[in-house]
Nucleic acid binder design. Sequence first.
DNA 1: GTCCTATGTTGCAACGTTGCAATCATCGTG
DNA 2: CACGATGATTGCAACGTTGCAACATAGGAC
Lengths: 339, 339
Amino acid sequence: MAARLKDVAALAGVSVRTVSNVVSNTAAVAPATRARVMAAVEELGYRPNLAARNLRQGRTGLIGVVVPEIHSPYFGALTGLLIDAAQERGWTVLLERTGGRPDLERRLLDGSEGHQVDGMIISPWSTSPSELASLAGGLPLVVRGELEPDGSIDHVALDNVGAARDAVGHLVARGRRRIAAIGLQSGLGHGTAELRAEGFRQGLREAGLAPVAEVEVADLHRAEGARALRELLRLPGPPDAVFCFSDELALGALRVAAEQGVRVPDDLALMGFDDIEDGRFAAPSLTTIAPDREQIAERAVQCLTERVFGRLEALPGRRIVVPHRVRGRESTGAAPAPV
Amino acid sequence: MAARLKDVAALAGVSVRTVSNVVSNTAAVAPATRARVMAAVEELGYRPNLAARNLRQGRTGLIGVVVPEIHSPYFGALTGLLIDAAQERGWTVLLERTGGRPDLERRLLDGSEGHQVDGMIISPWSTSPSELASLAGGLPLVVRGELEPDGSIDHVALDNVGAARDAVGHLVARGRRRIAAIGLQSGLGHGTAELRAEGFRQGLREAGLAPVAEVEVADLHRAEGARALRELLRLPGPPDAVFCFSDELALGALRVAAEQGVRVPDDLALMGFDDIEDGRFAAPSLTTIAPDREQIAERAVQCLTERVFGRLEALPGRRIVVPHRVRGRESTGAAPAPV
DNA sequence: GTCCTATGTTGCAACGTTGCAATCATCGTG
DNA sequence: CACGATGATTGCAACGTTGCAACATAGGAC
């Protein structure tokens, strides 16, 4: 059915090897020959069989991108950017979702599940970096997000502690004193939440304040944010500002504030983390920590590419920190409401 | 480096073929032999080389999912469900974004871009089904969303006309008479918008009404919805209800309503389409048309699987219509605001 | 004319797997 | 005991490509 090198060769009147040279640019070919071959390729609609090429070359041109979920705005946006960055470098992305399940994370890494890839970019949920490294064997790996650092693999991460401190600074600068946090996660050895909590406390300490409350959540989605703010509003001395560890949590909280007649930002300043699209169009718009997502994607793919092609096996893991900024909007009174 | 069948065979003291029989369950193997082989597999950490398997079997186990974008809530959610449904049937998903670019849509289909897949599920933006079919050649294809029907390929779609009619019905039943639409797209031969416009007009006709306005948009995102509502509010006789062809458009409109002090639903009823997560947590929560997304994903993958394995090449294209329902919430006064 | 180099072209083998058909042992049946 | 049927195991070849090294030809230097 599909044309092979052999068919093209027969039609063009040259050897199989020459056709291969033309289509994969591996050797010098006389212009006339090249033209004849190209014509035959065109006529037969020849496309190289990638399975054969992969088998021969020992590479697949695929990289795995492993995320807990893709339907959430944060991971959705990041995944899109990763695909772009990968495409630019000639990779094709194989997307895997773990749903946060540790067993699935493991099976994907050790190769018993899923397809063969040349490398992986993983946003782990529950597996520690050292475990990741051993599971992956020799597979090039870039870890997204933050768990305790491990010497042997590459990380691309934010300065989560610093970002959380900046968030508190933003609230304090706007005169808030009774500040709470939503988004701690005790169950997991999930480092990101812990780092943000750490930064939150540091920021308060620097301002000579103490946390009004720290609310734990089961996940980072809206429903949990809503639940958490309801809880905070029942406290005897409710907060005048809340720092949520994700925009989705903040949007859930925003909804509850509207329900209960709590005015944002007048009665309560609300702040998120991630800078997702929804936050820009919320009413009031959401102040947030904006990581440089393009750079995260760019650096992660670049890093992985170097690992795959380079002789970096012996190199120690690199630690790439991507910048962030506070994006002040209406929910903390940092931007005037339009009209 | 990586263990091969040959290595396992040597260790277990059997032939390569027997090991293959064990790992791929292709023939009866004596329990004792199987145990010996499994032990060797375990010891060497053997994983089958998929490139070789694919080459031999002529199949890759990959299906392509082609969407215009994945960062949007609608496509993000759908893609997640497609990956789930595919995984259940043993497929791995290769995700491709077109960004709505026609040339990229084409290159993906004719195989000159991207990897080799056994089939594709595509949400086309600008390529017509007949063109899709000819580009794909013999590649099994399932088309998502709606363009003019074509006899030879499978479609999985909503009843867009009926759904839009239902939306109008919902607004009319709540006493609205001055109804506008946001979301028409003239530039594209993009069928979905046209079908919803058609249903919108039918619904109004049935109620003996005429459209107050129909606003065109460049895309279906929030910014366009915001722009469109601003435009509508400047009209001499503004509408008392707006049907937006996507939830994102409606959320953009909702934001503008809040900015301009237009009360929703009292002054203006707002309705969307897609039932994305954000709409549930907006204040007010967003009435919408909810397609049965699980079923879309499920049926699309099922359909494709049948095409790949079945002898259905000669079969005419099937047309699968997935049900939807109106989900009444606060933005049309269909659900009381909590507390 | 000989040698050397540069350029273009080729055949062979191999990547790791599985389809096919052959082989061998074992068992039940008549 | 011969026979066929069944079960278990095997060797060979092939999937379509590319690395390697060899080969052919032409052109330039001496």
